[in-house]
Design a protein around this nucleic acid. Structure first.
Length: 569
RNA sequence: CGGAGUGUAGCUCAGCUUGGUAGAGCACUACGUUCGGGACGUAGGGGUCGGAGGUUCAAAUCCUCUCACUCCGACCA
């Protein structure tokens, strides 16, 4: 491909509204342009990358035995009403009406549609199991679209749905999808982890997420040093510990702590560690109007998912209002403590191991020190309430946990009969008996993968594409292309040789100085680069440099094509 | 949803306090000189200053409304 025939518009300056590096680089390299909040156009260069990702996903899905379909992006409300999600889904669901006033939505996902389709197409156990997938545009009206393509409103997703006669068959396909996803992300050239996950709004039981590891990831994931254990931090359990705590060594005292509200403020004021304090959070209980206290060690963070799963706690988790707090505790949020609270109290295991701790006195401007469970207040119910932290023991008993950040790019679920039962999706078994099908669902964020790949592979000069998804494999930068015959002829000949060899090559045939060419090529991240100059040509050499490596080297012109062929294998 | 902020050329921004009819850099076009890591000169093209209304002899600038976008927060305890 000649650059003169393939419009690439790079930007020297970073557009002001791009925060994360992938968004900045995608705009600067001319991969995407923003149309409106959370909506992006893909320019030719970006689309080449997107197509590569899509093709790898498609090839691996096909080879797993899944079969491709394509369902409408606009979906009738009736099906969503049948599953109950028309009411459950909030404003994230983009609802619209046609000219007859009939309700529709732009699909954020396709469980309803596929279940309906399967119900029509699948009538016999002989047709099972089957795994339908599509690669298609979704729309979710995100509260806060951001990070460019990473959390856009409209995005491309591969979603697959499998149908089974029983759980054992589902488990088989689920395991197969786990393997398939592993192959996909491996082929994409990304550093990723599969982690146990919370199944969230889609429902179902077993679930794994696939994360591309990157500092800027929106999710925290925990994995063990000595075993395969890996889980989203939402899901990662803490071990109860031995429940032994030191004996009380101090008397309980009330201390004035004027204006000290947060744990950090209080612990600094009292010249101690946050881990010597407990924090008390009031949340709505299951019963209308009730309030429950959650107690954590000061340096630990509440895990809202775990908390909302407790029987006594309302789900989803809602924090008590200031009025409620004052009503049950008689103080503001900054002075809460478990001593003398006349509501259910649930404490995290780690908080229960403290002795002589510090907490709010339930009186504004006062905290208590030297507090001990049982002696000073009733022993609360114990629970796992907190997020795991670096160094916690692994829940499987092997090794310790590390917490890193990840970008969720894939998610597999066992849905069971959540949709098939409400939508009455059945087949006949070998005895002629009607059986409700068991389902699995498997998503991959195709557009998000592009952003995630950049988050993981870039330097100060721009993108460094993995070979598998680079828009072009090789770039040719000819010095003084217009005026130097030998350079021009060599460049064109190499271009043709690469093309003939089936290697995608971009020839920088536009008038530009070397520096400008190289800056552009670094920015757009083409993995292999050849500089052709009159000087090197005199010795029969061109310069070769891999984008990912520091130094270029002179290579005999005769060897360059085979050298790059090798590098690509 | 709550809070803060920003809308001026394709991009990054200045001008607004103190009203006088719009600028810079990058990008773009032409010509020339350059040409091994983002060249330089000369000459150009491009903006109803987000929109509507108001105040005024006069509004990018002041006032009101509106739209769009961005950021922060939604564990303070």
């Amino acid at each position: 491909m000649y650059l003169s025939r393939f419009p690439v518009t790079t930007l020297k300056e970073t557009p002001a509204d791009a925060e994360v590096i992938s968004h900045q680089l995608m705009l600067r390299a001319g991969l995407i342009r923003r149309l409106a909040s959370g909506l992006y156009s893909w320019l030719p260069l970006g689309l080449r990358v997107l197509k590569k990702v899509e093709n790898i996903v498609r090839e691996e899905m096909d080879s797993s035995g899944a079969v491709e379909v394509l369902m409408p992006s606009i979906q009738p409300a009736e099906l969503w009403q049948q599953s109950g999600r028309w009411e459950q889904y909030g404003p994230e669901l983009l609802r619209l009406q046609d000219r007859h006033g009939r309700d529709f939505c732009y699909g954020p996902t396709h469980e309803e549609i596929i279940t309906d389709l399967a119900n029509r197409e699948l009538t016999s156990y002989k047709q099972l199991p089957v795994n339908y997938y599509q690669i298609q545009t979704k729309f979710r009206d995100e509260v806060r679209p951001r990070f460019g393509i990473m959390r856009a409103r409209e995005f491309l997703m591969k979603d697959a749905y499998s149908f089974h006669l029983d759980q054992a068959s589902l488990q088989e396909t689920y395991d197969l999808m786990y393997q398939t996803y592993t192959s996909i992300f491996t082929r994409l050239g990304l550093d990723f982890r599969a982690v146990m996950a919370h199944s969230g709004a889609i429902g179902g039981s077993s679930s794994h997420e696939f994360h591309v590891l990157a500092e800027s990831g929106e999710d925290a994931i925990a994995f063990s040093s000595d075993s395969d254990y890996a889980a989203n931090i939402e899901k990662a359990e803490t071990l109860p510990g031995n429940d032994q705590r030191a004996a009380a060594g101090a008397d309980m005292q009330s201390i004035d702590t004027p204006g000290q509200h947060s744990i950090d403020e209080v612990s600094a004021f009292l010249k101690t560690e946050p881990s010597r304090c407990v924090k008390t959070l009031l949340v709505n209980g299951t019963e209308e109007g009730s309030v429950v206290a959650l107690v954590l060690r000061g340096d630990h963070g509440l895990n809202e998912v775990k908390a909302s799963h407790l029987d006594a706690v309302a789900s989803p988790l809602v924090f008590a209002s200031d009025e409620q707090i004052r009503k049950v505790a008689g103080c503001s949020a900054g002075s809460l403590g478990p001593v003398g609270l006349d509501i259910p109290v649930i404490a995290d295991h780690a908080a229960l191991q403290l002795a002589d701790f510090i907490c709010g006195a339930n009186t504004d401007g006062k905290h208590l020190t030297g507090v001990n469970w049982e002696r000073d207040c009733p022993l609360p119910v114990a629970a796992d309430l907190r997020n795991v932290v670096d160094g916690d023991p692994s829940p499987d008993g092997k090794g310790t946990l590390s917490v890193v950040r990840g970008i969720e790019v894939g998610h597999i679920f066992q849905l069971g009969q959540k949709y098939s039962s409400t939508m009455d999706a059945t087949v006949l078994d070998e005895n002629g008996k009607s059986i409700t099908m068991t389902m699995g669902c498997y998503g991959i964020g195709v557009t998000r993968i592009v952003a995630a790949a950049i988050e993981q592979n870039h330097d100060e000069n721009g993108i460094i594409w993995p070979d598998a998804i680079a828009p072009f494999s090789v770039a040719i930068a000819p010095i003084n292309f217009q005026n130097t015959d030998s350079v021009r002829e060599t460049a064109i000949r190499l271009h043709d040789e690469f093309t003939a060899a089936g290697i995608e090559v971009l020839l920088y045939d536009q008038k530009a100085r070397l520096g400008a060419m190289l800056a552009d090529l670094d920015l757009i991240g083409i993995p292999h680069r050849i500089v052709i100059g009159e000087r090197g040509l005199k010795d029969g050499n061109v310069e070769y440099k891999a984008r990912a490596h520091d130094k270029g080297k002179d290579v005999p012109l005769a060897d360059i094509v085979s050298l790059i062929k090798q590098a690509l294998n």
